[in-house]
C-alpha cells in the first residue's frame, strides 16, 4: 500500500489559525501542491498580504515576505525585478487586493509583472471581524452593512477577474472555487497553470478563488459552502477569462 495523499512539502507543518471549515486552508494546500509538482519550492518567494492570510508566511515552506496591506503586488514586483529567475507569488484577500490594493494589482497586471497572484474572494473582511468588502454581494449583511449592501449607497461588488481580463499584461486570468471536490481539483489545475504561465515568462497571472468565511457569514462550514455555490457563483461566474493561448 502506498501513501497517495499527504501534506505537500511546500507547506510547513505549523497548524493554521484559520477558523474551522475556512477554505483558506484548502487554497494554501493547492498552492503548495502546485509548487511541489512544479519542483520550484527552493525557487519560490511568496508575499503574504494583510488579512486572515497575514500569517501565510508561517504556512508556506519557502522564502516569504510580509507586505503592508494592499501592497503585495508592489513588493512582489520589487522581488521579481531583483530575481527574475525565481517564482514569485502573492496570496491576497479581497479587502487587500480589491480595496486598498486596487491600484497595485491593476498596475502590476498592466506592467505584465511575471508574478502569480492567488486572490481569495470571500466577500468580506475576515480578520477584522466581518466588515463589508468591495466584493460583498448586493443585500449581503456585514458588520458595516448591517441592513444589507445597498448599491445606491455603496455601489456594486467588483468582478476582479473580468476587470483584469481587459488588461493587456494579464495573460492568465481565471476564477475558480473550492466549494466541492470537483471544483477543488479544477482550482488546483488553474493555480498550477498560473505558475506555469510565470515560469514560461509569458506575463502576469492571477487566479481568483471563491472562498468561504463561516465565522463572519454566521454559517456552519457546510452551510457556507452551499451559500457560496448558490449566491457567489451566479454573480462571480467561474472560468478562464484570459489564457496564454489566446495571447499567443
Amino acid at each position: 500500500m502506498k501513501l497517495v495523499f499527504e501534506r505537500p512539502s511546500a507547506l510547513t507543518d505549523k497548524q493554521t489559525h484559520y477558523c474551522p471549515g475556512c477554505t483558506h486552508g484548502i487554497i494554501h494546500r493547492l498552492v503548495a501542491e502546485a509548487i511541489d509538482e512544479l519542483g520550484v519550492r527552493e525557487k519560490a518567494i511568496g508575499v503574504a498580504s494583510v488579512g486572515c492570510s497575514v500569517l501565510a508566511y508561517e504556512y508556506f515552506n519557502c522564502d516569504m515576505q510580509q507586505a503592508a496591506h494592499g501592497r503585495a503586488p508592489a513588493v512582489a514586483t520589487g522581488i521579481k525585478r531583483v530575481h527574475p529567475d525565481k517564482v514569485v507569488f502573492t496570496y491576497q484577500g479581497d479587502g487587500d487586493l480589491a480595496s486598498i490594493g486596487m491600484a497595485e494589482i491593476v498596475h502590476a497586471a498592466a506592467r505584465g509583472e511575471k508574478i502569480t497572484v492567488i486572490f481569495v474572494n470571500n466577500t468580506i473582511y475576515g480578520m477584522t471581524g466581518g466588515q463589508m468588502a468591495p466584493t460583498s454581494l448586493v443585500g449581503q449583511k456585514t458588520t458595516t452593512s448591517p441592513y444589507g449592501r445597498q448599491p445606491d449607497h455603496c455601489g456594486y461588488p467588483i468582478r476582479m477577474s473580468e476587470l483584469l481580463s481587459t488588461v493587456q499584461g494579464a495573460v492568465s486570468v481565471a476564477r475558480v472555487s473550492v466549494h466541492d471536490v470537483p471544483n477543488i481539483i479544477k482550482a488546483k489545475k488553474a493555480i498550477k497553470k498560473a505558475f506555469e504561465t510565470q515560469l514560461s515568462g509569458a506575463g502576469f497571472s492571477i487566479v481568483e478563488v471563491l472562498s468561504t468565511c463561516p465565522t463572519n457569514w454566521g454559517k456552519t462550514p457546510l452551510e457556507a459552502l452551499k451559500w457560496l455555490e448558490e449566491n457567489m457563483i451566479p454573480y462571480y461566474p467561474l472560468g478562464e477569462y484570459r489564457t496564454p493561448e489566446e495571447v499567443k
Partner: peptide, 25 residues
Amino acid sequence: VFLQAESEVAAINMVYGAAGAGDRV
C-alpha cells in the same frame, strides 16, 4: 532596473521587496 510605480506608496513597497531580496535599491 528602473521602474516608475503607480504611486509613491507602490514605489516604497517595491523598494521593500527589492531590499528584502538582498540588493541595493
